[in-house]
Measured scan of single mutants.
Amino acid sequence: MDETGKELVLALYDYQEKSPREVTMKKGDILTLLNSTNKDWWKVEVKITVNGKTYERQGFVPAAYVKKL
């Protein structure tokens, strides 16, 4: 869990989004888990830094590609 009590997951593999509802992740990324009720796709939040500014983006990743921490 992070400092706000949200559950975290670890990306076990790289994943490139294939639709606007998904998010890209790299092996080793730590993501915030938002919803894991679907056994195949989990909703996560990723933080992306571009030119020194951090953005948060929500989307789905394959559940088999992440592990709860």
Rank of each mutant, 00 (worst) to 15 (best):
E7Q: 14
V46Q: 14
E7V: 09
G28V: 01
K68N: 06
R57K: 13
K67D: 07
G59C: 02
Y55D: 07
V46G: 07
K43S: 07
A63E: 03
D40A: 10
D29N: 05
Y65I: 06
V66T: 04
P20W: 07
E45K: 12
Y13L: 09
A11Y: 02
K27T: 06
E17N: 06
P62L: 03
V23W: 03
Y15E: 01
I30Y: 06
T49S: 10
N38F: 07
D40R: 13
L31M: 11
L69R: 03
P62A: 02
Y15D: 00
W41V: 03
K47L: 11
N35W: 06
T24S: 15
L12I: 11
S36R: 08
D14K: 03
A64Q: 12
V50W: 09
R21C: 12
Y65C: 09
K27V: 08
N35F: 05
E45D: 04
S36N: 11
E45G: 12
A64V: 09
K67I: 13
A63V: 06
G52D: 10
V50L: 12
Y13P: 00
T54K: 08
G5N: 14
S19R: 07
K6E: 09
R57W: 02
D2C: 11
E17V: 05
E17P: 15
Y15A: 01
K6P: 10
L69K: 04
T54W: 09
S36T: 09
K68Q: 10
E45Y: 07
Y65G: 06
L69P: 04
L8P: 05
W41K: 02
D2H: 13
T49E: 12
D14H: 05
W42E: 01
N35L: 07
V44Q: 00
T32S: 07
K18D: 06
N38D: 15
L10R: 09
L31K: 00
I30N: 02
K53A: 14
P20F: 07
V44K: 00
K27P: 03
M25D: 00
E3S: 15
K39I: 09
V50E: 12
G28A: 02
K43D: 03
L12H: 02
V46E: 04
L69A: 05
D40C: 10
V9R: 01
K18Y: 04
V44P: 00
P62N: 02
V66R: 00
T4Q: 13
P20S: 12
E22Y: 04
I30A: 02
G59E: 01
D14E: 05
G59I: 03
L33S: 01
P20K: 11
L33N: 01
L34V: 14
V46N: 07
V46H: 10
E22P: 05
E22H: 06
V61L: 02
L31V: 07
T4V: 14
W41H: 03
Q16A: 13
G52H: 07
F60Y: 15
D2G: 15
K47G: 06
K43G: 05
E7M: 15
E22Q: 13
E7N: 13
A11H: 01
M1R: 05
E17S: 14
W42V: 06
E22W: 02
E17Y: 05
I30R: 05
T49C: 11
L12M: 09
Y65M: 11
K43Q: 11
E45T: 07
E56R: 15
T54D: 12
A64F: 08
K39V: 11
V50Q: 12
V9A: 09
Q16W: 12
A11G: 03
T49H: 14
E3C: 11
A11N: 01
Y15F: 07
I48M: 09
S36K: 07
Y65W: 06
K18Q: 15
K47E: 07
E45S: 13
V50F: 11
N51R: 05
L34I: 14
T37S: 14
K18C: 08
I30T: 06
D2M: 11
K39H: 15
L8D: 04
N35R: 06
W42T: 03
I30K: 05
E17H: 08
Y55H: 11
K6F: 09
N51I: 05
W41Y: 08
L12E: 04
K43I: 12
V44S: 00
P20H: 11
L34Y: 04
K53W: 11
